[in-house]
């Protein structure tokens, strides 16, 4: 039992420290949002990629960065309503 508790605690610590660690009840929405946020953060962090996208979109790099940042707020729309029960 103690082992199980410790595992549980460790998992919780992990979930706290690293966003997107996931748990047994991770929903599709959580998972996809998490992936999308990771991607948007990565686009911003790689200057060549951000530059590439900006040229494609015909706008400045800063605007593309803000766009990526803004998309991180709700990348896949709001969470679907959960059925109580």
């Amino acid at each position: 039992m103690a082992d199980k508790l410790r595992t549980q605690q460790q998992l919780e610590a992990l979930q706290n420290k690293y966003i997107g660690t996931g748990h047994a009840d991770t929903t599709k929405h959580e998972w996809t949002s998490n992936i999308a946020r990771d991607s948007y953060a990565s686009f911003q962090g790689h200057p060549p990629l951000l530059h590439y996208m900006s040229i494609g979109m015909g706008q400045g790099v800063e605007r593309t960065r803000v766009h990526c940042m803004e998309s991180m707020v709700l990348p896949c729309g709001p969470a679907p309503a959960t059925e109580e029960g």
Partner: peptide
């Protein structure tokens, strides 16, 4: 900063 915690959990989109 933008806090997305509430907008994400609200399924109606009003918080967003």
């Amino acid at each position: 900063e933008v806090d997305y915690n509430e907008s994400e959990s609200d399924s109606s989109g009003a918080m967003f």
